[in-house]
Nucleic acid binder design. Sequence first.
DNA 1: ACGACTTCTGTGCACGCGCACGCAACCCGA
DNA 2: TCGGGTTGCGTGCGCGTGCACAGAAGTCGT
Lengths: 149, 149
Amino acid sequence: MTRAEPTMGELSARDHAFYGLIWAGTTLAAHVDRALMRAHELPLSWFEVMLWLNGQTEPVPASALGAKTLLSRPQVSRVVDALQARGLVARTPAPHDARSVEIALTPEGLAAFAEANATRRAALADVFDQRLDDADIDALETVWAKLKA
Amino acid sequence: MTRAEPTMGELSARDHAFYGLIWAGTTLAAHVDRALMRAHELPLSWFEVMLWLNGQTEPVPASALGAKTLLSRPQVSRVVDALQARGLVARTPAPHDARSVEIALTPEGLAAFAEANATRRAALADVFDQRLDDADIDALETVWAKLKA
DNA sequence: ACGACTTCTGTGCACGCGCACGCAACCCGA
DNA sequence: TCGGGTTGCGTGCGCGTGCACAGAAGTCGT
C-alpha cells in the first residue's frame, strides 16, 4: 500500500522517450526471459545466440556473435559452453584458422530453438498484439534502423 | 576482422520490433551509464532513484521507489545506502509508521542531480537529436504509454 | 487486549555479466 | 627464417542485481 505516488518531474518529450525506451526494453526482456525460463529452462541470452545462429547456413565464428549480439565476447564463450553441454550447438575448429572456432546449431538445437521461438512469440503476443497496431510496429522498426546507424 | 556476417533469419515485423526495443534500450542505457560514470562516478541506477526523487516535494517511502523504478526493492535499499553515504539523499523515519522510511534529496543531492541530468541530456543528444525527428519521439512516447497500461 | 496475518525494510546468497589478462595462432617486414 | 605486432578465444576476478528470508511494526478480529 504505497501512500505517496511519485511522478517524474517535468521533463521534455525527448527525456520521456529516453526513459520509455529503457523501461520498455528491460521490461520486455524480463517478460520474455521469464517465459523462456518457465517453459524451457532457457535464459534469454542463450536464446539470442541461437537466434543469430538460426538464420545462418554456414557456421559462424564466435567473434561475429560477440559483435552482433548484446552479449560481450567472453559471455558468448560461456553461453556457448552451456549450449554445447546441452548438445544444442557444436563447436568446430575453423578450416583455415586454427585459433578461430565456428559455431553451428545441432539438429537438436534447431528443434529447441523452434519451440523456444514459439513460446517467445506467444509471450510477446500477450503484450504486443492487444496494445500495439501496425503503425506502432513500423515506427519502432524505423527508430531502430535510425539508431543502429 | 569478422569473416562471416550473421544476419537474423526471416522474422516478422513484430519480431523485429521486439528485438529492436531490447537492443535500443540496453544500448542507450549503457551509453548513458558510461557518460554518467565518466563525468560523475554515478551509475545509472543511482541516477534513476534521484530522478524519481527530484520531482517530489514531499519525501517518498522506499516502497514507492521499488514500485516505480526499474530496480527491485532490495536494490533500492542498497542504492539509497550509497547515496546516503555521499550525502545526496537523507533517510528519515516516517511520521506515523515506524517501519517505513522516507527518502528525500539533500540540497547537495539536488545540485548533483542537476549536473548529472545535464550530462545525461548531452549524452542523449549525441544519439537522439541527429537521428530522430519529432515524429519518432512522439511515436516512442505513445508506444510507451500503450505498453505501460 | 492479545494473537494471527499483513506490510515495510534491510541482509545472506547465488548468478549473470563485463573487464583485464593470458595464451595460442596468424601476419608481415627484415 | 625469424621476431614483433595483431587477432581470436577462453578464464580469473569483481561488481551489480534479484530471490528468499529474517526482523520489526502495524492491523484487525475476537
